[in-house]
Amino acid sequence: MHNFGILFIWALAACILWQGFFAKGQSGYICLIEDPKQNQYDSICLTELSSRLSEVVKAQNEGNKKLERLEVKIEKTQDKLLQEVQSKLEGQHANMEAKLEDSLLAVKTKLEGQQVVLTKLKVSQAKLEGSLLAVQAKLENQLQAVVNQLQAMSNKMDAAKVAVHAITIQSGFELIGTRYFQIVKEEVNWETAERRCREMGGYLASFRNEEESNAIRPRHGDYDYWLGINDQENEGHYVSVASQKPAPFLKWARGEPDDTNHEQNCVYWYNGEMSDIDCKTDAVYFICQADKET
């Protein structure tokens, strides 16, 4: 860069001297000095040109020195600015790191606190579940005790009812299970069977459950027996004639009931299963019960 500057100044100086110290006359270039005869050769002023060039070189050297000093000063200023910027950036980076570490520590502390709370909640939940299970087991045991007591009372009441019925029971009825029944082998229609049971002091039978049905089954032989159950008043709703309530136990044979024409409204029993047929059918035996409960 300096070499190019020197070359440029030398060229500039030559141009100035060429234009400033020479004038073009009729016979060529002349030197514009007081003593044009000294050191003059072929219209060129060597002495004046040498002096001027020396001044230019001196000025160039001084300019170079100033330029060098300026460059040193700029370099020092740049280094100082760089150091200040670097120091400031390092300080900001340190502050950012400190703030980030503090934030992370706060988040970690908060998470640890939440974990402690969650652990306590889990422990409390486990204790509560254990307490609930214990209470549930206790209630179930108490409920079962109440059920057992009620069953015992029911059995006692049934036994008392049987004893009362035994006192006033009509002849011909026998105790089968917990109730009194009479199996009558007379072939009659349903209305006749219902009337005959009333005449005997009882009602056309209706079983409470399958245990009663199974208890009577060995005694009935290979015959059909009328039961005190029908749906004459409301098709499909079978009631007991003894209690006038819905029949508590119905065990239908396969395909029964099959009252397609709404004419089979009375129920008969065979071999532990029930079917519906026309109430006017008169070739069926019947079973009476001594009480009017079902």
Rank of each mutant, 00 (worst) to 15 (best):
257 P>I: 03
32 L>D: 04
264 Q>D: 06
200 M>C: 00
66 K>R: 15
11 A>V: 10
267 V>R: 00
284 V>F: 03
226 W>C: 03
226 W>T: 01
235 E>F: 15
158 D>L: 10
91 G>Y: 05
10 W>R: 04
13 A>V: 10
274 M>H: 06
229 I>Y: 02
228 G>H: 03
234 N>V: 15
59 A>S: 11
75 E>Q: 09
170 Q>P: 05
253 A>Q: 04
3 N>T: 11
170 Q>L: 02
10 W>A: 14
152 A>N: 06
135 V>A: 08
252 W>C: 04
42 D>L: 15
75 E>F: 06
256 E>H: 10
242 A>L: 02
228 G>N: 07
196 R>C: 04
179 R>T: 05
119 T>Y: 01
224 D>K: 13
71 E>K: 14
253 A>M: 07
87 S>D: 08
253 A>S: 13
167 I>V: 12
208 R>F: 04
195 R>S: 10
83 Q>M: 08
280 K>Y: 12
63 G>E: 09
54 S>M: 15
17 L>R: 02
74 I>L: 15
73 K>S: 12
282 D>C: 03
139 L>V: 05
107 V>H: 10
197 C>V: 00
60 Q>H: 14
105 L>D: 12
212 E>Y: 02
93 H>A: 13
137 A>K: 10
218 P>W: 04
32 L>G: 01
266 C>T: 07
272 G>Y: 05
145 A>M: 02
12 L>M: 09
39 N>K: 14
158 D>R: 10
7 L>D: 09
265 N>I: 13
255 G>S: 05
234 N>R: 14
171 S>T: 11
285 Y>F: 15
61 N>W: 14
264 Q>F: 05
196 R>L: 14
74 I>M: 12
69 R>N: 12
196 R>P: 02
173 F>M: 00
292 K>F: 14
78 Q>T: 11
135 V>T: 06
28 G>L: 06
192 T>W: 02
253 A>R: 06
120 K>L: 11
82 L>V: 09
286 F>I: 03
215 A>S: 08
257 P>K: 01
161 K>F: 11
112 E>T: 08
211 E>P: 03
114 Q>G: 05
80 K>V: 07
62 E>M: 14
53 L>Y: 09
15 C>H: 09
31 C>H: 00
220 H>A: 11
65 K>I: 15
195 R>N: 10
126 A>V: 03
292 K>W: 07
120 K>C: 00
151 Q>D: 09
151 Q>V: 05
90 E>G: 01
141 N>Y: 00
247 A>Q: 04
113 G>M: 01
186 E>Q: 08
287 I>F: 01
89 L>C: 06
